[in-house]
Nucleic acid binder design. Structure first.
Lengths: 146, 146
DNA sequence: TTAAGTGCAAAATCTTTGCAAATGT
DNA sequence: ACATTTGCAAAGATTTTGCACTTAA
């Protein structure tokens, strides 16, 4: 199931909304469609620009918040602290439920990739520090940039 | 040189400013003093609250920016994307010039620690992804929280 | 039908900019 | 003395809130 068509993506999005008991509305479908179109994470300003007049800015805030709460999207802060969103992995065709994964930020094109296949290494902390989760962001140049 | 007194901290701060060819001013000393008092990183809102009327909010923005540019402070974004600042390691008594280090965020007290002694593991990225730096933030409970 | 979701207006924050006055060297 | 730095005012940007209207189920 590579490169699903718009119709296929919409079907998947509708299922996703149903599964989380959210109503199927135009703003939500547009947001999901936009985000799932790209391989890399999508920043909120980017979404605003793409969606333009079709989705109100306030609605976008609210849609992104519900999606994050429900675990449909996860938020990544880019190097400037800008909120950037990517689909959670349960949405992936492979159904890998690996919420923790390494992010890769390309300093050339600013894209953020979720590297689901990269192993998260063990971090050894000082005595008394108990780790619940580890966020790793590798910065460099991606495979599309020279 | 543990727990330096206020006077000692001010001396260190003045040297630090001189070394970076910055004028020694009251706002700059206050900011450095406040940040160096704590073991953990200090958020900008926290600084605003502590400095109160003694330093203008706009001045604080500018002071933090120069300090970051000059490599006196480094900025860490906390889990909410709030800018949080810690002294760069050259400032440490040991003179370890290790700019990359693991951060630890306590989800209980929200403190951010710079773990200079924790080894940064190797991250193996997919073909074509070239890593320049790796940011690691471990989230959990610190040694002061239950 | 009706609870949930949206859009608009407006408030509350956060961040930047311009400029005159103050200050460190 | 003079370039830097500060503080204030004001603009710009971002995020949140309240409420009436719309829409999916």
């Amino acid at each position: 199931m590579q490169n699903p068509t718009l119709k296929e993506r919409n079907k998947i999005s509708e299922d996703l909304l149903k599964r989380h008991k959210l109503k199927i509305t135009s703003p939500r479908l547009r947001v999901l469609s936009t985000i799932s179109e790209k391989e890399t994470a999508t920043s909120q300003p980017e979404l605003e620009k793409i969606l333009g007049d079709t989705v109100d800015r306030v609605t976008l805030y609210r849609v992104l918040n519900v999606f994050e709460e429900k675990g449909i999207l996860h938020k990544i802060l880019d190097l400037n602290g800008t909120a950037t969103y990517a689909l959670c992995s349960e949405y992936c065709p492979e159904h890998i439920h690996q919420e923790e994964h390494v992010h890769f930020t390309c300093s050339s094109c600013n894209s953020i990739y979720c590297l689901n296949d990269v192993q998260i290494p063990e971090i050894v902390t000082p005595l008394g520090f108990k780790i619940q989760s580890v966020a790793i962001n590798a910065v460099g140049t991606c495979n599309k940039c020279p």
